[in-house]
Amino acid sequence: MKKFKRIFTYAFLGVASFISIFPFLWMVVSTTNKSVDVTQGRLLPGAHLLENLRTLFETVNLGTALWNSFVIAAITTILTLLIGSLAGYGFEIYRSKGKDIVFNILLLSMMIPFAAIMIPLYRFFGQISAHAPLIGIDTLAAALLPTIITAFFIFLFRQNTKMFAKELVEAGRIDGLGEIGIFFRIYIPTMKTTYAAAAIIAFMNSWNNYLWPLVVLQSPSNQTIPLLISNLGSGYSPDYGVIMTAIVIATLPTAIIFFIMQRHFVAGMMGSVKG
């Protein structure tokens, strides 16, 4: 009976793992096959990878889309971490009744569905366009600005700051460091793991963001990777091999981050429930 249970457990987890991995295997195998082979359900690697890559770079602006996504994700990550950690630190180290009230009000913004603020944001950036075209509609700046400051990261940093030894702040003051100096010279180096976890989440969120860029970015030269894939996928005569190649390239950065930094990855996810 016990042995039977064991076998059942392995079979169950085996099937679940197979279903979880299969789409990945199919994606990767399909990058090496012709479109016809993909539609006919070929599951063996072919010799069409270079051809698919060439078609991809020749027919669509994959390079530009990768660059746009990278620029947006990199700037978003840096600013999110800086501003979010400044606030998390401020709320916890300089704790006061007033700040706690403000903190709770800021947390309320986590309940705001993006669909509800999408239209006012679109109109807002539309109005800005006339005065400051550099951050108006159809600019990378407009695509990243509303995503930089989120209550989630303030919350995450505040929760983690609870474990930061406050004596270090006193020690810094005695050493003659200013309050901002303490933050940059003591807090940031001590909290490296929190920053790593937060960076992974911020980068992935931005890299995969779809709805807001879809609304605000219009010209092909400003396309991000999700927009490009979505466009390829909704085409009338899709070249499956080429699309799969684009999807694999788009997924690679996040998959690599996951495999290299698995521990930080999970720590980042958990950061949202701790406390």
Partner: peptide, 19 residues
């Protein structure tokens, strides 16, 4: 098993939707 079952969570929503 753990890594395999978690793996779908690293894909972008658009990418897996098209797949």
């Amino acid at each position: 098993f753990r890594t395999a079952i978690f793996l779908p969570a690293v894909t972008s929503l658009v990418a897996y939707a098209v797949v």
